[in-house]
Design a protein around this nucleic acid. Sequence first.
DNA 1: GATGAATGAGCATTCATTCAT
DNA 2: CATGAATGAATGCTCATTCAT
Lengths: 215, 215, 215, 215
Amino acid sequence: MPRERSTARAQERVAATRDGLVQAAATVFAERGYHPTRVSDIAEQAGVGQGTFYRHFSDKRQILDAVVAGTAERLQSVFTDENAPEQIDSLAEYRERASDMATRVFELIAAEHREMGFLLGQLPSVDDDGAATLDFVHGIAAAMIAEYYRIGIERGFFRADLDIDAASIAVIGMGLSAAWKILRNPADTGFRAQYRETVVEFIVRYAAVDPTIAN
Amino acid sequence: MPRERSTARAQERVAATRDGLVQAAATVFAERGYHPTRVSDIAEQAGVGQGTFYRHFSDKRQILDAVVAGTAERLQSVFTDENAPEQIDSLAEYRERASDMATRVFELIAAEHREMGFLLGQLPSVDDDGAATLDFVHGIAAAMIAEYYRIGIERGFFRADLDIDAASIAVIGMGLSAAWKILRNPADTGFRAQYRETVVEFIVRYAAVDPTIAN
Amino acid sequence: MPRERSTARAQERVAATRDGLVQAAATVFAERGYHPTRVSDIAEQAGVGQGTFYRHFSDKRQILDAVVAGTAERLQSVFTDENAPEQIDSLAEYRERASDMATRVFELIAAEHREMGFLLGQLPSVDDDGAATLDFVHGIAAAMIAEYYRIGIERGFFRADLDIDAASIAVIGMGLSAAWKILRNPADTGFRAQYRETVVEFIVRYAAVDPTIAN
Amino acid sequence: MPRERSTARAQERVAATRDGLVQAAATVFAERGYHPTRVSDIAEQAGVGQGTFYRHFSDKRQILDAVVAGTAERLQSVFTDENAPEQIDSLAEYRERASDMATRVFELIAAEHREMGFLLGQLPSVDDDGAATLDFVHGIAAAMIAEYYRIGIERGFFRADLDIDAASIAVIGMGLSAAWKILRNPADTGFRAQYRETVVEFIVRYAAVDPTIAN
DNA sequence: GATGAATGAGCATTCATTCAT
DNA sequence: CATGAATGAATGCTCATTCAT
C-alpha cells in the first residue's frame, strides 16, 4: 500500500507543521503577550510562511485555544495522575501527599513558567472566553482540593466543622501566590521548598483535629 | 483680580476634563480591556473630542498610569489608614483586626470590582511595566502583612518559628482568591463573610502559639 | 455666530472630501473596473489618505452605490425632465420627440461614456445587488417607453394591436446597442445621427397605423 | 502495441480532466462571477486537486478563454448552421426564417442561461480582452444580420434605402434585451414566443417594401 | 483649550501559484 | 500525471496620532 503509506506520512507532516505552530505560538505569546503578538511572529517563530498559519488555524484566537488546552492539560494532570485522595489514611500521609503535590505543581510551574505565566497573566485579558477558561481551571482545582478535605473529615483527622468550600479557595490562592513568585524567579528552588512547607503547615493547622500529632 | 479668578476657573475646568477622561478610561478599560479599547472609546465615554485626549495625555499608555494609580492607591489605603499593627496587644485583638481588614478589602473589591478586575486581569498583559506595577502592589501588601506577623511574634501570641515571608505570601494568595471570586459575583455578601472567617482562621491557626485561647 | 459659521464651513469641507472620493471612484472604476480597483487607488486619485476613505465609506461596495446613484440619476433625468408624453398630439410630433430624446440619451452616453460603460459593463459583475440595480434602471426606462406607446394608441396614431410590453423591451434593446457602439467610439457623432434616424424609423414603422403620413 | 493503447487511453483521461475543469469553471464563473471565483473553487467543483488545475491551464485567465470559446461557439452556431440567407425567396419565407432563428437563439439563451449571462454580464468586467471578445461576437452577429438585409434588398422585398448597418445594430439590440429578460426568467416560454413575434414584426415593418403582403 | 477630520503605518487575511511527494 | 500543503505578495481595514480651524 504505497498510497496509504504516503498518505500517512503526509498526515504526519501536516501534524508536525501544526504542532510547530502551536509550540511557536506558546513561545511568542509567553514572550510578548497575546495582543502584541502578530500572526507573522508566530509563523516566523515556527519557520513557516504566514499563509501556512491560516491553513491550520482560522485566526489568532484559534491557535490560542490549542496553546491553552496543552498548558491547562499539563497543569491538571498534576492533580489527577495517580493522586486519588482515597489512599490517604492518616494525617502524616496527608502531609506527605500535600507536600508531594505542592512539589509537583511548583516544579511544573517552574519548568513551564512562561506558559503558566501566560495562563495567569494574559488569558483573562484576551476575551471573556479566555477568562472563562481560567475560571474553569480554577473550578477543577477547587473541586479536587475540596475532595481531599472531605476525605480528611471522613477519616477523622480533619475537624468536621471546617468550611470545605472556603478552605479550597484559600488553598488555591496560596497556589496562585506561589505561581506569582515562581514566575518571577523560576530558578529559586529554595523558595519553593520553603513555601511548600509553609503551605502544608497552613493546610494542616487549619484543618487538623490535632495538628501536633504528626508534627 | 479678574485675571486670576478666571485662570483659577480655567484650571479647574482643565482638571475636571482630565478627571473625566481618567474616569472614562477606567470604565472602558474595565469593560473591554486595555488593548481592545480605542482612544476614541475613552474620549466618547468622557464626552469630549479625540483631540482633547491628547491635550491631557501623550498617549494611551499614559492614561493607564493615571487609572492604575487611582485604583492602586485606594487599594493600598485600606492597609495603611489607621491600621498600625502596634496597637494590637492580644490574639483576640489580632483576630478582630484581621477580620476588619479583610472586610474592608473585600468591600473595596466588591465596590470597585471592575477596576480591581482590570488591575488583576489586565494589567500584567499591558506590558512589562504593567506587570511590574502589580508586583509593586503585591510587595507593599506583603511587607505590611509581614509587619503584622512580626508584631505578633514580638508580643508573644504568635510562635517564633513561623516563616514570616512565606506566610505573608500565602496570605496574599488567599486575598487573590477572594478577589477572583468576588469579581465573578460582587453581590454575594454571604461568600465574603464566610470566606473572611475562614481566612482569619487560617491565619490564626497557622501562627498562634495556642489558637484555642481566643476561640 | 462664529461657531455655526465654522461648523458650516467644516461640513462643506467634509462634503467636498466625500464628493472628491465619489468622483475619484467613478473615474478609477471606469478606468480599471470595479474588482481590480483597490481602495488605495481611489484614495490616491482623490488625493487623500486611505484612512480618509474609510471615514466616509465603510468599504468599496459602499462608494459604488454613491457612484452608481449619480450616474443612474443623470441617465433617468433624460427621460423625466420636461418630457411628458401627454404633450404629443400627432405622429409628426411623436417622431420629433423620439428623435429629441434619442439625441439626448446618446449625447449623455457619449459625454459620460466611461461612467455609462461602467454601468453597463461592470455593474452586473459586482454582485447580485449590482445586477438588481441595473434591472431597476431597465424597468424605469421600459415603463416610460410603455407610457409613450400607450399615449400613441390612445391618440389614435399607433395601431391598437401592438404589443406594448414587448415593444418597450425591444426599444430598450436598441438603446443598449447604441450605448455599446457609442462607448466604443464616443467621438463618432455621425453614427449617432444615423442610428437615431434608424431607431425612430423602427419605432414608427412598427407602431404607426399609417407610417407614411408623416414621412 | 499495448504502449500505444495505454497512451491513447491516457490522452483520453487527460482530455476528460481538462473538459471537466472547463465545465466546472463555466459553472462556478456563472454562479459567482469571474473575479470572486477562486481557482480552488474550480478544482473542487471539478473534483480534482488544485495542482491539477495548473497542469492544464497556466492561470485563471486561461481557463476563461476555454469557457468563453465554448459558449460563444454554441451561440454563433445558431446563426451559421444551415442558415444561409441565400435560400430565402419571399417576405413570407423571410418572416419564417427570422422567427425560426429568434426561436433558436432564445432557446439557447434559456437553456444555457447561466453561461450566456456570464458572457453578457461578466465578460466585459474581466479585462480589456474580455470586452474585445464580446465585441467580436457582436461583430459576427451584426455581419450576419447585415447579410440577411442585403439579400432582402437584392431580392426586392426590402426597400433599397434602409440603413443596413444601423438596422443590424438595432436588431442585435433587440436580441440583447431578449437575453436580459430571458436570463432573469429562463422558464418563461410565453415571453419568448410573444417577444419573438414582436421582433419579427419590428424587422419586417421597418424593412419591407410592403409589410402587408405577408400579413 | 477644544475639536474632529485627516493620516498612514501596521496588521489580519486571502488566494494565485509552486513544488515535493 | 495528480495532489494538496506551503507560500508570500497583495490588499482591505483599523486606529493611534496629528493638526488646521
